[in-house]
Amino acid sequence: MQTPFIRISNLTKHFQMGGTTVRALDGVDLDIPQKSFTVVMGPSGSGKSTLLYLLGGLDRPTSGQIAVNGLRLDEMDENKLALFRRQTVGFMFQSFNLIQSMTAEENVGFPMQFAGIPSKERTRRSKVLLEQVGLADRGGHKPSELSGGQQQRVAAARALVNNPNLILADEPTGNLDTTSGIGIMQLLADLHQSGRAVLVVTHDPRMVRFATHKVFLLDGKVVSETEYRAASLE
């Protein structure tokens, strides 16, 4: 049997809020295969974003194991996690997180600085990626001069710049109008088609039609679609 691309075992993440302990993830077990398009759905506070950040090595679990492509994130030190984020993962956020003072091209090229890629190569690769996301003529524009959909496309290009195996998207259509949202969904589907694993955390039910895998979260636990639907109707 093939080893899953992502294997999560008995994962918990607890936060202290005031005097109480919030169990954001409470014993999650999950296997995600190579080159899958996974959509994680759940209401606010279900722990879906927490799961995404743990998968991306942006946070550390309270207990349990996370392995991505055979790498145990829960055992890595800060430097190895940074290297993991640089080489294996590309992030897209709901609020795009572009640097306002940089042009689209500079934003796309920004992660390559930390990988020590020379300036010329950064420019070349940024141009190629902007063309790939349909913004070839917008490279010199700053984020404030771009629409929401265009900004998210720049963020997508930035996520691809180090050629990662895994794209993690946190509510990528959350701040976009319907048309732009569909465009981004299509873009994510194209990335999946190009051979990458994509994991999207979303409220948007339209995203489900692109999914090869669906994960439903309720109160920090993975539940079946039936349980999820039943809970949603209540």
Partner: peptide
């Protein structure tokens, strides 16, 4: 702060 978070998300080490 968010920019620092982004730097780290795209692979910057603490040292960077």
């Amino acid at each position: 702060t968010r920019e620092i978070g982004l730097m780290k998300a795209v692979g910057a080490t603490n040292r960077d």
